[in-house]
């Protein structure tokens, strides 16, 4: 097990290096930091001094190695736009995005999986047909449109929920949470639904398809032939066998939720990393963009590792290759 985790971590290193290279390349090829920093009036000597100070006269690989070294220490330099350390900016914004993303993922899982099981078991019922139609809407409508529609209905017409922002937050250490205030929770509802809806319908359709597949298998028929209770057959034997593909997709989707919260955060003016990124793109704030890119890559790499570990927990056949030797007896 330890060897497996270690080998996966080693595999992640080149991935992260490639992403770091792309991030780094932005500095070199998108805009010219020196002219941005110097402003309008400067002498050639000032320019050369700054280039030397920034180490831009060094060979490419030396510069890249320094960038990676700093990144590992969480050092991404100053934001051009806000003149504050990038790491600080991101740390400030991360709680908002992570809370939004986890709520969206929770909605997607805890509503999507039961709906998928239901539509798989009762294919003919009118409720299943309704869910399927509804899921088509969820899959095909773009996120920003769903967000705007929700704002129109629940904020403008009904006035139940706020249309933007995060409400009041409570600071716990360096983490600002919206979970502890009424307005924080209310503000979370619409963006979380908007962000989770697509994933919800995707997970529902996936679980349904997998359930239909699994329910046809001999071992389910045999479980019924042994007189096991329906609940145990459907939710134990059948659902557990659908989990491997569902975990894969749900894991990747959680990554996407974090990475592509950008649209939802923009629609709801949610003060998270996505909004920060969009604002940074507008201002060509390369240090922030580079750091965000690296962070998202790290999120995906971590999620992939967790997904692989979950496979092992769910499916004993994957443990088989090492099982023979590990068993010992």
């Amino acid at each position: 097990m330890f060897a497996f985790v270690l080998s996966r971590l080693l595999q992640a290193v080149p991935v992260m290096l490639v992403v770091a290279l792309i991030s780094f390349a932005m500095f070199a090829y998108v805009g010219d930091p020196v002219s941005i920093m110097l402003g309008q009036d400067f002498t050639e000597a000032q320019r050369d001094a700054l280039v030397r100070d920034l180490g831009l006269d060094q060979p490419f690989f030396v510069q890249f190695a320094r960038f990676v070294g700093n990144a590992i220490q969480g050092e991404f330099g100053l934001s051009y736009r806000l003149s504050r350390p990038v790491a600080e900016l991101i740390a400030e914004r991360a709680p908002a995005t992570l809370e939004l993303a986890s709520c969206a993922a929770a909605i997607a899982l805890f509503v999507g999986v039961p709906m998928g099981v239901f539509t798989g078991l009762y294919r003919q019922s009118w409720l299943s047909r309704f869910f399927l139609t509804f899921s088509l809407i969820g899959v095909s409508l773009p996120t920003f449109l769903i967000g705007i529609l929700l704002i129109l209905i629940f904020s403008v017409w009904l006035g139940w929920l706020p249309s933007f922002g995060r409400g009041d937050t409570v600071q716990i250490g360096s983490w600002s949470t919206g979970f502890l205030t009424g307005s924080g929770l209310k503000a979370l509802v619409l963006p979380a639904i908007t962000l989770g809806l697509f994933q919800l319908t995707l997970i529902m359709r996936l679980v349904r398809a997998e359930m239909l597949e699994v329910l046809r298998t001999d071992y389910i028929k045999f479980a019924r032939a042994r007189g096991l209770a329906d609940r145990s057959v459907n939710f134990g034997h059948a659902l557990k066998n659908t989990l491997v593909p569902v975990i894969t997709i749900a894991g990747l989707q959680f990554g996407s939720i974090i990475a592509f919260a950008i649209v939802t955060e923009t629609v709801f003016q949610w003060p998270g990393m996505g909004l920060l990124f969009i604002q940074s793109v507008g201002a060509a704030d390369i240090p922030v963009m580079a750091a965000y890119l690296l962070l998202i890559a790290l999120v995906f790499v971590t999620i992939n590792l967790v997904v692989d570990l979950l496979y092992y927990a769910v499916d004993p056949r994957l443990r088989a290759d090492r099982g023979a030797s590990a068993r010992g007896t």
Partner: peptide, 25 residues
């Protein structure tokens, strides 16, 4: 009928490779 299956009438299927649930001991 569920209470009869297994308890009063047992069943054996053709292919043992697919009859057992792979995820349970």
């Amino acid at each position: 009928m569920r209470r009869i299956r297994g308890r009063r009438i047992g069943a054996i299927f053709q292919d043992p490779l697919t009859t057992l649930n792979p995820l349970y001991t």
